[in-house]
Design a protein around this nucleic acid. Structure first.
Lengths: 348, 348
DNA sequence: GTTGAATTTGGCAGCGCTGTCAATTCTGTT
DNA sequence: AACAGAATTGACAGCGCTGCCAAATTCAAC
């Protein structure tokens, strides 16, 4: 019943060429006559031939694999699952279309010795490339371990593209400026900002974008309208209380991430401040919670899938001998307007 | 700098044995003298030898890979990310500890022809085994495609274990009965149930568990206390309204999933019915939202990670020639008591 | 036509390991 | 001590493919 899979030899003899020529066709190598290519392809189709990955890897000394390294969500209370799924989605899309496979590699950077372990495992797998997702992409221990394996890698959202290697990031700063302008266009002049964890680079960039945005609209920057959160819902709630108790309170609050924005929504509900009638709220990240709460959050969608796709594609191209130019590839984010923002209230 | 990786030959000559003996030690095959094993192991350590996976796969005609097939979350509005991450976590744990790799394989069962495509891709990969997660594990198109590849596979939560093959599931029915009993022990006698999508088998089992639980406590089953949802938050909200408008309304509502339970919480808030003072609410699944909403949901945690682990382990064992007994392996769920349940109100 | 270069094809040696089977060494028994 | 049988080890042929290099063919220009 289950007949033996066709091998390269079967194809070669059916097409009347040598196995080497079949190999050339399969690998799209140059210098094969078009007619030859055609007959080989016909034989491949006829026999339903699929190259054996192990044999290719063994002979070519590298596996057609991309490894995606990311912060292990199970080590903390995984609301980041959506983040990871999106990264996986993008990486998988790139891999599948190029005949590569994706190996996922969560790793908990809290453990000591993750670096060594990661290095060891990558050594064993020998992938064609490694995608390192934020926030791991900013941790020296992880990055050094990856570097030590001597495998091509691409870091995502390092926030510090030095231009010496290919990197992928989003335009956090620009798009945050864009969100600020959007709020200003709605008539808001007192736009508050809730900063996040300072060690998180991407989150830091958003603050600069906020300042840029104010400046672009000719709005003054006011120290009093900036408060410091820690990325959590709870901190968003606290920050919001502080801001909303001011006598001349802001009419819009822009939070450096969605969790904190959700906290703002909660605080406003408790204080009976209507959203968006009396207060506009914007977040960043477009986590799934953003559209589940009421009112649904206006936010910035990070192009995670597209970023992971770009990074994986670059690695695959590089494995094929067509490395991408060093430098920062910027994948733009997108402002998602939902229910939590609206025109400035009349009385303000 | 980067010296050639040690091969089995290097180990063999250092240990003074044949490569076959090294192979035996590495693969833990029987009939090797303890002293030989020891010296080979020493050589392996000394040389930091790692078997080349491609070479092993090529020679042994199968890859040390497990494929995890699940419903593609990107096709719908992915709140299921947490579900998938947990499955991945368990499968990964099993694979890593056994020297296998995990390949993830989301597939959108809505597309026509997924079956053929899946089959094709598995054929190419030639994994040692396939774990098929719910709800895909109940779709004939997917299951048939997997079966056609002639690769060992394990289905998760089919709800229909026929005992003819090894399967993994949780004790949905029992644990739902347990939740019902827990509510009864809190003094509730009017416990309502919100059913979910009827085509979802696991969700269906929970209704039977609810009935079992009532019976075990000597509580009557009342048709009027059972309403029909569709697994969504919105439907939970509607069902709750219906239940809470009854003259002799229930004091506890048990929903077949957390989304619907979250809907109940929302409806209760709107109707100014205090939770858990006036109403207890329980859900199923322990989605991340469950602990983010207020009050945090009492729910049933599905042992997703443990189930995926068990399934993967079974496949790995089977690849090693130690197949598990056919039959249903039940991994028990866990009742997580949070804030949304409490004693029956006095006046009720 | 002829020549030299460019293009296209083929031959074949591995890649590092496992499966098969045969050879060797070790048991316990008579 | 001799012998069957079990336990242990080794030899060697691939697994299916790619890399390297040589051979064959085609092409371009004279």
């Amino acid at each position: 019943m289950r007949k033996r899979r066709a091998t390269i030899e079967d194809v070669a003899s059916l097409a009347g060429v040598s196995i080497k020529t079949v190999s050339r066709v399969v690998n799209r190598e140059p210098n094969v006559r078009a007619s030859t290519t055609a007959s080989v392809k016909k034989a491949i189709t006829k026999l339903d031939y699929r190259p054996n990955p192990s044999a290719r890897n063994l002979a070519s000394h590298r596996a057609r694999l991309i490894v995606l390294v990311y912060d292990d969500p199970s080590t903390y209370d995984a609301p980041s699952a959506g983040y990871i799924i999106k990264l996986q989605e993008g990486a998988l899309r790139a891999c599948r279309s190029e005949g590569f496979e994706l190996l996922i590699h969560p790793c908990s950077h809290r453990d000591s010795g993750v670096g060594a372990e990661l290095q060891e495992q990558i050594r064993q797998i020998r992938p064609s490339g490694i995608v390192v997702a934020a926030p791991l992409s900013n941790l020296p221990e992880i990055v050094d371990a990856v570097k030590a394996t001597n495998t091509p890698y691409v870091r995502l959202s390092t926030g510090t593209g030095n231009g010496k290697q290919y990197e992928v990031a989003t335009n956090d700063r620009d798009i945050s400026a864009g969100m600020t302008r959007y709020l200003a266009e709605l008539g808001h002049t007192r736009i508050a900002f809730i900063r996040g964890d300072r060690t998180h680079l991407a989150v830091g960039n958003r603050f600069w974008g906020y300042r840029d945005g104010l400046e672009q609209c000719g709005l003054p920057f006011a120290e009093e309208l900036v408060v410091e959160g820690d990325n959590s819902i709870g901190s968003g709630e606290k920050c919001a209380e502080q801001l909303l108790q001011m006598e001349n309170r802001p009419t819009a609050i822009f939070a450096a991430n969605d969790d904190m924005a959700a906290g703002v929504v909660r605080a406003a509900a408790r204080m009976r401040i209507g959203i968006p009638d009396q207060l506009s709220v914007a977040g960043c990240d477009d986590i799934s919670l953003a559209q589940m709460i009421f009112p649904a959050l206006t936010t910035i969608r990070q192009p995670l899938s597209a970023m992971a796709h770009a990074a994986s594609k670059a690695l695959i191209d590089s494995a094929r001998g067509r490395p991408h130019e060093p430098g920062l590839e910027v994948v733009p984010g997108e402002i998602i307007i939902r229910e939590s923002t609206g025109p400035v209230p009349r009385n303000a």
